[in-house]
Design a protein around this nucleic acid. Structure first.
Lengths: 366, 366
DNA sequence: CGCTTACCGGTAAGCGCTTACTGCACCCTA
DNA sequence: TAGGGTGCAGTAAGCGCTTACCGGTAAGCG
């Protein structure tokens, strides 16, 4: 049946049309399920498509109807050498991307990804090129300055993750305030700890700033004493967490009764450093994380942390972007609820306390 | 300077041209660095581009010069619940993709990714749609039947990973034979083990078939006795490895002195199952893996395995695809060298034996 | 000083597809 | 039987870009 004709010049709908004995318009209509072609016409077209194993060209399609059905996703890839367990941070991003993909697939979109190394140059140019190939962009944390975003947003809708909305771009993030509040309250009210510390993340991360601020506000509100200052500056990595503890201890400072960490990676490093000094968790110092990465439950002790709906975050980001692409609207700032996961590093006995709370979404409209 | 003109209708090179007072051809030439525009012309164009923050449309470009500068990548994503540590298999794929990206970036290509769940339907249609949006496709292991590949290859160049070349597609893989041979020789010759077993991977995986066959050949050649049969069928997962051991033991079979596993995941499950029965590794049974995933070195005992150059594999796959796209050539079957990583699960004492070998690439041309 | 040569820049023709518009049959109604 | 619908299919115009081709200007040469 199938011709042995090995087509090498690109196959177009003209080829399909002539083989089926119809016009290109009909081919297009059949392929897109538009209009109401006669059954026979439809059949002839499908037959020809099958015989030629024709696949319509995406670029031509995109050009013609102004929709590429592609979202660009930009994120950071580690490059430096990794602390043990650090690999997890990759996963983290991948889970979000997976969520984006899920959302995208529902609309027939695909993901055009581009990762950026910590010391890549001409990042803005790369992202711009990506923008040209996509209908919209989703930028992971700290990929582009506000100015850079503004410039690009003229051409393409942009959604940022865990950042903050700009006049030109939308943002999706998790409810950091609620997470920190839940953690602080659990430590202060449920456990009665009176002194708290917060090992922060990268100083330039919006997420970190929010968490840091929420920590101070909530701790004070709960009536606890807090330790702060540059000595508490981490960088989201396990190594960073470990070195904060090490330098604090080396400086002879007394640790607070409980330490909140900017993320689970940091907590991992903190617990490690503490163990090396013979300080017990949670008996001497209680520790909490943020993120609930997969290994969190396997640490010793299992880590009390905040679970963020990563995959949902990705999916939501796509949805927002999509609504911006198709309608032009889109909520400027979307906040997703997080959940307190109580394990043992806070001082709770195994399985004793099954606290679990969910934040209300601020305003979750269409 | 910048006009407050909030362009909403798509910006085109016509806009840039009129603002710069030149023709669209000049704009295009400047943007692509072709021809030899006068310095002044170039400057005016660049200025206009900057002021408008213009980004050329990828689809139009692609349509016009027949090159999208996009590679489609299709792979499997786990969906089932995971055994502890199983997450690693994600990483595995991501490392390869990362490699593809590195290669792609060198040529200004981006990655259009699409993951397929184990029970997604209309996979072929999805892949076809992807093909329409890309200049070529890279398919991870077992994504499409040979027929499906043949059909698509009519329209787009295809490179498969860890598969086997078909008349229509190219393939890139690691040197499984060498890896297995190195493992078998190390176990038989260096350690003197006389009986070997091989816990296989998914039956339909070309990689697995190759490894399995190599195992039998090499073991026999080395003069060892081998255990085979359906009882040794695993599926690349830790759970699969564990259940092979469990059923073997439950059936009262005596285990061989050394067991090779189809991959590290499997080895992880095997070691776990052995530990549960109180069988010591490597004193009672030596175990080896394949892949050298990051956790391999952290197992107890650290896993002797074969390291595959994952990232290179990805990069190579892209290069092959690229040469096919641009020139039409491309080596049908590319084999990358692997390396024996000796740790302790084979019976070597910590750091005692620093064996390390590298296979020669069969024929590594341009 | 006039003509050739070189060099830029502009005009216009597509790339493969979608879709508005138009044309043609055929069927229904009066 | 004639007029008006109705419904399908075809023609052609464009989507935003690249580039072959051509024309004009200025420099070089005899």
């Amino acid at each position: 049946m199938a011709e042995p004709k090995k087509t090498r010049a690109t196959l177009t709908i003209y080829d399909v049309a002539s083989r089926a004995g119809v016009s290109i318009a009909s081919v297009s209509r059949v392929l897109n399920g538009l209009g109401s072609p006669r059954a026979e016409t439809r059949e002839r077209v499908m037959q020809a498509v099958r015989e030629l194993s024709f696949v319509p060209d995406g670029a031509a399609r995109a050009l013609s109807n102004g929709l590429k059905e592609v979202v660009g996703v930009v994120f950071r890839r580690g490059g430096e050498e990794l602390f043990e367990g650090e690999d997890e941070s990759f996963l983290f991003i991948d889970v979000i991307n997976r969520g984006i993909e899920v959302g995208a697939r529902r609309r027939g979109f695909d993901l055009l990804i581009s990762s950026v190394g910590f010391n890549d140059d001409n990042v803005a140019a790369r992202i711009a090129a990506l923008a040209g190939k996509a209908d919209g962009l989703i930028l992971h944390d700290r990929m582009l300055s506000a100015v850079g975003i503004a410039r690009l947003a003229d051409m393409v809708p942009i959604v940022t993750l865990a950042g903050s909305p700009t006049p030109a771009s939308l943002n999706v993030r998790c409810d950091n305030e609620f997470g920190i509040r839940a953690l602080v309250r659990h430590l202060v009210i449920d456990h009665g700890y009176r002194s708290l510390g917060y090992v922060s993340g990268r100083a330039d991360s919006p997420d970190n700033r929010t968490r840091s601020r929420a920590f101070e506000t909530e701790a004070v509100a709960a009536g606890a004493e807090i330790e702060t200052g540059p000595a508490w500056q981490g960088n989201y990595s396990a190594a960073g967490g470990a070195s904060v503890v090490a330098s604090l201890l080396d400086a002879g400072r007394k640790l607070p009764r409980a330490i909140l960490c900017a993320n689970d990676q940091t907590a991992l490093g903190v617990i490690h450093a503490l163990a090396q000094r013979g300080i017990r968790v949670p008996q001497d110092v209680a520790i909490t994380g943020f993120d609930d990465v997969p290994v969190a439950r396997h640490l010793h002790p299992p880590l009390t942390t905040i679970r963020q709906p990563m995959q949902e975050l990705g999916a939501k980001a796509f949805d927002i972007l999509y609504s911006r692409i198709s309608a032009g609207g889109g909520k400027a700032d979307t906040v997703l609820p997080v959940e307190l996961i109580v394990r043992e590093s806070c001082g709770c006995a195994q399985g004793s306390m099954q606290a679990s709370a969910t934040a209300l979404v601020a305003t979750d409209g269409m």
